[in-house]
């Protein structure tokens, strides 16, 4: 079930990247996609009744600790890349005055010419 949902959210994010023309929506969609991957990673190998990987549990009962460690990394990555994207977004908005990808592209092409 969780795997299904993570696939759905991933494609939902991708869909938003394709159809939504606002930059901020693209960033939101990117966050959604990242979260979907994290959800998948955690739920992928999970079996019912497994305990957190802390030494109170027996080794056989523990859930796989590796995805969790990796996904903490992924969350930190997510926040820093989101912050950078947002910082760029505010620069972009200040310089171009719009956050529509199509208008941005047009202005940029005129700059080139």
């Amino acid at each position: 079930m969780a795997e299904l949902v993570s696939f759905i959210i991933f494609f939902l994010g991708l869909y938003a990247l394709v159809v939504k023309r606002s930059v901020i929506k693209s960033i939101i969609a990117l966050v959604l996609m990242e979260t979907a991957v994290i959800l998948y990673f955690v739920s992928g190998g999970f079996e019912e009744g497994k305990l957190p990987p802390i030494s109170d549990a027996l080794p056989e009962q523990m859930v796989d600790p590796l995805p969790q460690a990796l996904m903490i990394t992924a969350i930190v990555i997510g926040i820093s890349s989101t912050a950078v994207a947002l910082a760029m977004y505010s620069q972009l908005h200040r310089k171009y005055g719009t956050d529509d990808w199509k208008k941005l592209m047009k202005i940029r092409l005129e700059e080139d010419a």
Partner: peptide, 26 residues
Amino acid sequence: YSAPDLSLAEAVIGSALATALFLVAI
């Protein structure tokens, strides 16, 4: 899903801080 570490990280960083950053930025 027995991932308390991750839960804490997501709650603090993903839910609280990211939302704050988004709101301030836009």
